[in-house]
């Protein structure tokens, strides 16, 4: 029953995510595109929730849907961009776009096929979140409560936050620091660009 529900939810959210991602490209109104992108982000976050990666899901909502996309919307509305004009006759540009999209799609497909039991017809979510795909994922809260998880210490309390932090600050510490510096440089650059330059 649990497996069926998580499969249904996965396919539901995946369909919504793909359809709304298509809407981002297909829509002519920039505000419609931005809202489609928000829906796409939200359904991706929902898939992450289904996999038990609650922290990643919520960060997806806070950072992308809650902050970055709102700024997109902000700028689009401020500039009052009208519906863009179609320019399909530009063949070289279309070819470049198709090549980039194709390479990226190939990469994602390859990665998906490398997952354990991806070709065995099992639910991809199950395959991702536990190697033994017949077992229920051990990180869902409902499961913890069902098995009579005691109240003071829920067995899986912030398990994914903890493991994420430990991995990030030990195994991937140096890339993390380098990325932080890149972000800092970006922030300083934005402040420098946005600063009012005095004439005197």
């Amino acid at each position: 029953m649990e497996a069926a529900i998580s499969s249904i939810l996965f396919y539901l959210f995946a369909t919504v995510a793909v359809l709304s991602a298509f809407g981002v490209v297909a829509s002519r109104n920039p505000v419609n595109s931005a809202m489609c992108m928000a829906v796409s982000f939200a359904s991706t976050a929902a898939i992450l929730f289904c996999m038990g990666a609650q922290f990643l899901g919520i960060v997806q909502i806070i950072v992308y849907a809650g902050a970055i996309l709102v700024l997109f919307l902000f700028v689009v509305m401020m500039l009052d961009v009208k519906s863009e004009e179609r320019n399909l006759s530009n063949l070289p540009r279309a070819i470049i776009g198709v090549v980039i999209a194709g390479v990226f799609a190939g990469m994602v497909t390859k990665a998906a096929l490398l997952l354990p039991d991806a070709t065995a017809g099992k639910c991809p979510v199950k395959a991702l979140c536990c190697t033994d795909y017949d077992a229920t994922p051990d990180t869902t809260v409902a499961e913890g409560e069902l098995s009579g998880g005691a109240l003071p210490e829920l067995a899986q309390d912030n398990a994914d936050v903890k493991s994420l932090g430990e991995t990030l600050f030990s195994q991937y510490n140096i890339p993390f620091v380098i990325l932080s510096f890149a972000l800092l440089a970006g922030t300083v650059g934005a402040v420098a660009l946005g600063r009012k330059i005095r004439k005197d």
């Binding site: 809202m35 928000a38 609650q54 922290f55 919520i58 960060v59 909502i61 806070i62 849907a65 809650g66 902050a67 709102v70 919307l73 902000f74 509305m77 809260v141 409560e145 829920l154 899986q156 309390d157 912030n158 398990a159 994914d160 936050v161």
Partner: peptide, 21 residues
């Protein structure tokens, strides 16, 4: 009983900004 309580509240109530905009 999520393991990310306060973040959930920040994220979801942050979405109401779309309504205002």
């Amino acid at each position: 009983n999520l393991g990310i309580g306060p973040l959930w509240i920040f994220a979801i109530s942050g979405l109401s900004v779309y309504g205002l905009t």
